[in-house]
């Protein structure tokens, strides 16, 4: 983890550092979601699932030593100092901001990328009649998945031409730099760059390099869902339903549907045989994640005192939703 990869998530407002960590690895709790929303890093949820807390903390200590961040009043909270802001400015080219990626909807993005690259490698080697090669991923389940897929598609007429067509359709839609970088990560017959060779040629940080690919994958998944007929090969490999999930959890969504149909929280809890507290968790999740949430409707039917945890949270979320700023 490079300094810029952590600095990018801090601002002049103090925030709890652990919430950033939990967001990156994808620990979906109301308070982590809330912190992510408040500090504009909701889209990065799940984007670094293998990040270890130790690595993260070491990086933070580095920022502290360099005076890029300073401790806020609340315990374990930090904000960006003037020096830190300056550094962030200077390091702007190292930061990639995704356009299509929404981590909460693609929690297994890294694996999706690995799967895609392995499939490309397999077709490339097959096309060149090469049987003696090392697969680019050691992940067993992904290897199995690609093997299965290959059996399905290997008799497709002009297999590798068809794959070129599908990849072209996808990569053309990305900015040229992004498309080049994604393709440089492919592996195939007599082709492949080492991590260091890629890093030498790009100003992007290691994490940003991952985001570039996650973002591209998100676009591909979007295409696969919208125009399946144009992607007969990749559509069978990356089945959108398996890789993309709705932003709301299944249960929270049921609660939301009932709420929109005009039921009160108590009624919903009774009908769904769930505790009130669970229903309220759902409502908080909905309020956080659904842009058009009707706060007025909620206020009319709720009878809790204004000091209650739930109401404070709701007020907080409404306040944030009032002045959304782009990241």
């Amino acid at each position: 983890m490079e300094a810029i990869d952590l600095i990018r998530f801090f601002s002049d407002q103090p925030q709890r550092y652990k919430a950033i960590y939990y967001g990156l690895v994808g620990k979906k709790t109301i308070s982590n979601l809330l912190a992510a929303k408040k500090n504009n890093y909701l889209v990065y949820f799940h984007s670094w699932p293998r990040l270890s807390l130790t690595t993260f903390q070491k990086c933070l200590q580095g920022l502290l030593r360099a005076d890029f961040v300073a401790a806020g009043e609340v315990a374990d909270s930090f904000y960006l100092t003037a020096a830190g802001q300056h550094y962030r400015q200077a390091q702007q080219p190292a930061i990639f901001i995704p356009s299509y990626y929404q981590g909460l909807c693609i929690p297994q993005g890294q694996q999706g990328i690995e799967l895609l690259y392995l499939a490309i490698q397999v077709i490339s080697e097959y096309h060149h009649g090469q049987k003696h090669y090392i697969p680019g991923t050691t992940n067993y389940l992904l290897q199995q998945r690609v093997r299965q897929w290959f059996q399905q598609v290997k008799h497709y007429p002009q297999l590798s031409q068809q794959l070129v067509q599908e990849l072209t359709r996808w990569l053309t839609a990305l900015p040229a730099d992004q498309a080049d970088f994604v393709a440089q990560n492919f592996q195939g017959y007599q082709f492949g760059f080492q991590q260091s060779e890629l890093a030498d040629k790009t100003p992007l940080s290691g994490y940003s390099q991952q985001l570039v690919q996650l973002d591209a994958l998100a676009l591909l998944l979007q295409y696969l869902a919208q125009q399946p007929q144009a992607f007969p090969l990749l559509g069978q490999l990356l089945i959108p339903d398996q890789w993309v999930q709705p932003i709301l959890s299944y249960s929270a969504n049921l609660t939301y549907q009932a709420f929109m149909a005009g039921q009160s929280l108590k009624q919903i809890g009774y009908k769904r045989r769930l505790k009130d507290s669970t229903i309220r968790e759902h409502i908080l999740e909905v309020a956080l994640l659904m842009p058009g949430f009707d706060f007025e409707q909620l206020k009319q039917q709720d009878d809790l005192p204004p000091t209650d945890y739930f109401n404070i949270r709701v007020a907080e979320i409404q306040e944030m939703s009032g002045h959304e700023r782009p990241n």
Binding site: I123, S124, H127, S160, Q161, V164, A183, G188, Y189, F191
Partner: peptide, 15 residues
Amino acid sequence: TQPRKWQQILRHILE
């Protein structure tokens, strides 16, 4: 001389 442009890469590995 490994290609760096995506169009070239596709040509190199799949054609």
